[in-house]
Design a protein around this nucleic acid. Structure first.
Lengths: 208, 208, 208, 208
DNA sequence: CATGAATGAGCCTTCATTCAT
DNA sequence: CATGAATGAAGGCTCATTCAT
């Protein structure tokens, strides 16, 4: 966690530092990213950087948490809170849709998490159980869907949850890498999503 | 590409070097992986290393090509050559199945490609058009399937090809990360695969 | 010398700063001792520190002077003032005894002077002529002793003075390092001292 | 301990590095001594330095060991081996004499050990039980002297051993700091020593 | 071809000191 | 006077690459 000095900073300055960090980590993997560059782009001195953060890892952890948090904010909290009232596929669509919006509005930084977490020597130390949380969330949705009779009772809940989790990352990947899909046209984004969701729906919904 | 001296080496020695490199890249991201370590584990001197390879990047490119090549070898070449004679889903299953076997027999090194390619500063330089190749291959299979009337004519060939490509990586990911799926029991591996393929099949096959 | 602001401080605050400095210098050599730590332990801000002291060296010089001064205070001033009236060995015993009491009551900080003065890059700059003063003092005592016929006229005054000075530091060293000598039992302290003084006395007193 | 690469170096080069280190540590305390300076004065690159030594501490430990070893070599090994055959004061004189010769021929570097070991944060880590060894050695000599009836049976063996040990360092200190004692005139060195030993002898020898 | 010592640019991190509030 | 954020020079250490043997 950043030191308290960081949080005492004026909003604007703090944001500038975060932006500089995001930019650098988007360009360089952890071990090649230079704090000097980050500091310079943030308009602060190296010494100041070390008054805000314990060290390089401290910064990375914070950035990653920020991204995770930001992504969560895109999800419709009302739907999540009242998940019982919505259909499974409706929820999945909403979640995926929020993921899309997140991707659209943060296109520049989506690759960062992947880049950072690809470093085996950081994973264990930095990565919390974010992924596990996502899996558990999908499992719960699936259980609800099964109880309501929306889903094929034969599906392997664990496996499907894992698959949906992995898929959500894939989706972002596709959107992120394929610049041909114009994210500024949200319409087309939704269409992409709908098609993908169609695959899933056809695959696991209950058939009469 | 490695220098000719490398290819003049006795098979055994060459393999030892490759193994050492794989091991190191599995443990460390590109910029933290040390040639000194690789050389030592390979039982050669640092000087020799530089007689075989141009530099560090040269080694990485070679290793990546090796892995791609090895994965290809797992695919039933007869089916690929005579792809016209097989059903689309049959081919997909076979390809996925080969991916599974590859994952099973090279579990240790699966993460390497991901780790290496997560480095944005390497991607453009090192990554060839491997992924594009895969996408094109799937597109061809889809076109054939469409021509044969196996597939729903409404699907977006480009998107589905992209999706299948991404999916194949996801699959490997799931298998790779989830140690609960006992890869030694190939039966279960196949079951996993079949379930996943079921989703796809339900999603894009032609319905009468 | 500290700035006047320092001496305007309430006694208590000043002492807290001194204590914090002593503590830090006891733990770390000059170049590793941190003003930030001293300031924090003293309950003042770094900025305040620099309002009291010119710089780090200023503090060290002051601390060293304080210790020297404090040690002097342990010596029976009456005996020193009227040195002519006392026997040489009586004076030596008294001085050594006072050194012991100083060591006992300031055990925690005895090592500081040694630690600081071991730094060659500081010695010339910081060290006054404290040691020379001590040597001169012993020389005077020896001259008096010789004049009174207490001492063997053949001794080399300069050398013995130097030796006694060095010895006084050795004594403190022994007491300081050897925790087996229970300083709380002053009785035993005196016994140690008496034995050491016995060596000297036998060595330089006039024999008839 | 230095790496093997260091010991593979030609004698001359090795010596140059040691000399450069001695010179730097004589001028600067541990935390201010710069490897860059040592490397430069030794005529090697910084990189080379780190191929010879693990790190700065590694070098210091080695230098300290060297000095201790060198000092030992000055002692008449025959006398030490056959200590039973020599008188206590004879042995003490010989040991002190060897210390003097060591001081004379290594005047420049005598202060180094003191300087380095004055750093509390290094003592525990670097200092072995060298001092304890010396104390034990003197204790043994004293026991032999007592058994032979050479010494006053009332002396406190432990205390005197400790005192002699401390004294041997003091002696070196005097010689080291007092440039007025011309060490090039060994005659005068011996005289100094004899006087000091006289004090001790008078203090602890058996009186009839 | 093999070797491994030599090189030095490069980067993280520290901390004494300053200064604006 | 008090504060504590800002500064940046400085130094330990790493490691890819070269080269003489």
């Amino acid at each position: 966690m950043p030191k308290t000095t960081f949080f005492n900073l004026p909003e604007e300055k703090r944001q500038k530092i975060i932006d500089a960090a995001l930019e650098e980590f988007a360009r360089q993997p952890f071990h090649k990213a230079k704090i000097a560059t980050i500091a310079e782009n943030a308009g602060i001195s190296i010494g100041s950087f070390y008054q805000y953060f314990e060290d390089k890892k401290d910064l990375v952890k914070y950035i990653l948490n920020l991204l995770a948090q930001k992504k969560l904010e895109y999800i419709n909290q009302d739907m999540v809170a009242n998940r019982e009232k919505y259909g499974f596929f409706e929820l999945c669509r909403a979640i995926t849709y929020s993921g899309l919006r997140f991707a659209k509005e943060n296109a520049k930084y989506i690759g960062i998490a992947n880049t950072i977490l690809a470093d085996p020597s950081l994973q264990s130390e930095i990565l919390g159980d974010n992924e596990q949380v996502t899996i558990e969330f999908y499992k719960e949705l699936l259980e609800i869907g099964l109880a309501k009779g929306e889903l094929d009772p034969n599906i392997d809940v664990d496996l499907v949850a894992r698959f949906l989790t992995s898929l959500s990352f894939s989706l972002i990947d596709i959107v992120y890498k394929d610049r041909k899909i114009d994210l500024n046209d949200l319409e087309s984004g939704i269409k992409v999503m709908d098609k993908l969701m169609g695959f899933i729906e056809n695959g696991i919904k209950k058939r009469d």
